[in-house]
Nucleic acid binder design. Structure first.
Lengths: 352, 352
DNA sequence: TTGTACGCGTTATCAT
DNA sequence: ATGATAACGCGTACAA
């Protein structure tokens, strides 16, 4: 029984009219306001269903100054770690009635800035961001904090204090554990394929690596430490360089799994026995590390836990109206765990 | 030079006041309306920047009846194929000034229904969906089509005609090619680890498999064809069953890569030589297939192309105002390509 | 418990 | 080329 009107958009006014009530009552009934007779509420809900009424978020958001929407900026949704974090966040926020607008910076600072503008225009109730590796200046997030809109950084976070919540993995400890593990396996000449020092991630991992090396009086050889974008090509080039002749390392700690995998492939091609002649550890526990031959020791970051911590922090911030504009909370540090696999095993087993 | 007011939200009225112009002119200037003097536009843009003005999307959307937002429903953002598709869609839509609200159904039909409600409430300008494997009834999408809001299904799409655009991979051909490839490699006893027939994906792949088998007069043995959820556990169980004794298959076509990988792992454990004694082909060309030993032959689905086709279709629909409510376009079929690797090689090389 | 009336920030429609 | 004004759909003081 369609109405004769040309548009199919029913509003609370249509329900009010049909029920001979005022729009205010309809609004209250639909929002579980206490001062509504049960019978009335029932009637309203019934009529709403009958008319196919659906709330217009833009109108209610405009009026209430709440969009019930959270913005998220990540370098790339297809990175395993981020995909897992997003999965958790989106599911948990949905339960609380929030939608997630997901944006990718493609690791470009200018894109990141643009996206903050877009998300601000959407008046997101909060912003979650894993920044670009090159983001050093964070002032494009100021418009949110100045406004009382909570900002949560995770993974790639500001190094300087910033008026935002921070959730991060324990990168220092992850690198320290991985390196210590290599040393405990008897390695003394350990190379490090490392990420750019513009990011907190690789600063911390480099520090953890250095700490473990120093504790055992091992030398940090600059010709075996490569700070560069963590691509397979760069890793291959580094490997070629180190194994070009002369002294070679007996272990490699890689700051991510893509480069660890590339190193394994290099070793397999060149007939370098892993783990006998070269032990390798990576970072992130990407699914590929468990599958390659030999399986690679890596540092698990528990993306699901990271997601949960983010939502926990968010829940607090969203429900305490008007976040204090002065707070700087201590970073939430999510523990990591070394997952030991064949690539660092001391049981002498030739895999070639 | 902050204003004395307590809220930091500047509106076009503030700009109008500061410039002694009317809000209408400000709006026009900001929207590149032709009837605005250049000097005025310049002044407005300058003052907007000075006051830190940022458009309120909810207000403009409410008035213009366009949210410049697109909804997306996928089973899970962390599935490799979907993550890649999303990456492309989000980047391309951003260029056109659209935001993407991404939701996960977790492969639950009821969640999928819920999400359509949420996205309708947000008045998305279009909806993109990869449905649940169990979605047979698509009526929860009717509210969009009835309203002229474009709906685009991809990957998991309705089998019956539906008033929506469809973008899909050539599943029939992918399965046909993979199976033919196994047959050409000399296999005659080919098993099929298949997905549930509720989804178009697995209907088509099953048909392609059957077609190739029949063309060569090969028997479809029901005890070697498993229609089930495509999990590693299920695949392992199927493998155990087939290799429990008696006659064993000489090849396996798996409907996804997770199950193909499980099969390889089973073979490696049991000392079944791949490809010598058993050849294996998977589907999707997951990154893991290239990395495992032996590397697995798989069907590439070109997620980036799928994303591009979706955005192309969308661009047309979003710009032609009021989509004709009667159109049913022919499905856009994205070609697939078999990527041949060691797991189906005929060069006899024992990998154990 | 319900109704009246106004405003959220923007854009569309007239008028000038 | 610009201004005045009325909507868009909803929520909420205030009144009843």
């Amino acid at each position: 029984m369609a109405t004769g009107k040309k548009t199919y958009q029913n509003t609370i006014l249509d329900i009010a009219e049909a029920l001979r009530l005022s729009p205010a009552t309809i609004s209250r009934a639909l929002n579980n306001h206490p001062y509504v007779k049960e019978k009335t509420r029932k009637d309203v809900i019934e009529m709403a269903a009958k008319l196919g009424y659906r709330r217009n978020h833009m109108a209610s958001g405009l009026r209430s100054n709440k969009s019930r929407t959270v913005g998220l900026i990540v370098p790339r949704v297809s990175m395993f770690f981020h995909a897992e974090v997003i999965t958790t966040i989106q599911n948990d926020l949905h339960k609380q009635g929030y939608s997630l607008i997901i944006c990718q910076s493609n690791d470009s600072v200018s894109m990141e800035k643009e996206l903050t503008e877009t998300l601000y225009a959407s008046r997101v109730d909060a912003l979650i961001a894993a920044c670009t590796l090159q983001t050093i200046d964070f002032s494009h997030f100021d418009k949110f904090t100045e406004n009382g809109t909570p900002v949560i950084f995770y993974d790639r976070v500001p190094v300087e204090p910033y008026r935002a919540t921070i959730v991060k993995g324990d990168d220092f400890n992850g690198a320290y554990q991985a390196t210590s593990h290599l040393i405990a396996a008897g390695c003394r000449k350990i190379a490090h394929i490392a990420g750019p020092l513009t990011s907190n991630l690789y600063q911390d991992r480099a520090a953890g690596f250095a700490k473990a090396m120093e504790e055992h009086g091992l030398e940090l050889r600059t010709d075996w430490i490569f700070h560069q974008e963590l691509s397979a090509e760069n890793a291959m080039r580094a490997m070629r360089q180190m194994f070009a002749g002369g002294e070679v390392p007996d272990a490699l700690f890689a700051d991510n799994d893509t480069t660890a995998i590339a190193a394994i492939q290099f070793a397999n091609e060149k007939g370098i026995a892993v783990p006998a002649a070269l032990k390798v550890a990576g970072y992130s526990n990407d699914p590929r590390t468990a599958i390659i031959t030999p399986p690679i020791t890596s540092v698990e970051q528990f993306p699901e836990t990271v997601g949960k911590r983010i939502v926990e922090a968010l829940t607090g911030l969203l429900n305490s109206d008007a976040a204090e504009p002065g707070y700087i909370t201590k970073a939430v540090v999510v523990p990591v765990q070394l997952v030991s696999r064949m690539s660092t095993s001391t049981i002498n087993k030739n895999t070639i």
